[in-house]
């Protein structure tokens, strides 16, 4: 749910990184945080819990600068990936304006990717939203593993599993090295800001 503050000329959008457990959602945010200029990024919020899994969510507020006099602020959220945290995942998804689906290329996680995307679709429907109508970008993460002996899925396989219906933009990435992280964020930011402004501002500001 976007928030548009006409008095301060601010637009707030919420982008949620979704995906199965341990696919690298939090790593994406950490990477964005560490490489962005101080004036553009806010304080990264992680809820400290034992272990390296996200139990609730991570939040990174960003300031994208001004477009036609409107200050664009984006809040990046991650959801907990593990299947059992379904309730929390749904909570974080509340009011999302844009989505990044982070896919795990490990052979053994193939089913998890498909399940997670289905879960995303179901949860959105419960908020009355259709996945097809939302700004969405898919990131094929962990491409750095391709050259290792660990069995991974090819981009074609991932494409067939996850993107055959949507045909949305996809990015190959390696969140640990930073490859593809910004490209993903840039694309989803554009789509999301367009989506929100199309809905509310365009016709008023012209």
């Amino acid at each position: 749910m976007a928030l548009i503050d006409l008095s301060k000329k601010e637009i707030h959008c919420k982008i949620v990184y979704y995906g199965p457990g341990r696919c690298g959602k939090t790593t994406n945010l950490l990477n964005v945080h560490s490489s962005m200029a101080d004036n553009a990024r806010g304080k990264m919020l992680t809820i400290e819990t034992k272990g390296d899994r996200t139990l609730f969510f991570d939040l990174l507020p960003l300031n994208l600068g001004t477009i036609r006099g409107f200050n664009i602020r984006i809040q990046l959220y991650t959801v907990p990936g593990q299947v059992m945290y379904a309730a929390t995942r749904k909570l974080v998804l509340k009011g999302a304006d844009g989505l990044v689906f982070v896919a795990d290329p490990l052979q053994v996680r193939r089913e998890r990717n498909i399940e997670s995307l289905e879960d995303l679709r179901t949860n959105l429907l419960e908020y009355g939203l259709k996945l097809e109508d939302m700004p969405l970008v898919i990131q094929y993460n962990k491409r750095d593993l391709v050259d290792t002996p660990i069995p991974t899925l090819t981009v074609e396989e991932l494409e067939a599993d996850l993107n055959s219906a949507f045909k949305v933009k996809t990015f190959e990435a390696s969140a640990v090295t930073g490859m593809g992280v910004f490209e993903t964020l840039r694309e989803i930011s554009k789509q999301t800001v367009r989506y929100v402004t199309n809905k509310h501002l365009l016709h008023e500001t012209k």
Binding site: M1, L3, H12, K14, G42, K43, L45, F57, L59, P61, Q75, Y77, K94, G95, A96
Partner: peptide, 23 residues
């Protein structure tokens, strides 16, 4: 409900990490 801030008033408002608090 999504954690956006609509209004922030009070004497300590400026010292607060309101974005984190709201989320």
């Amino acid at each position: 409900g999504a954690g956006n801030i609509l209004s922030n008033c009070g004497r300590d408002a400026d010292d607060l990490d309101a974005i984190s608090l709201a989320a």
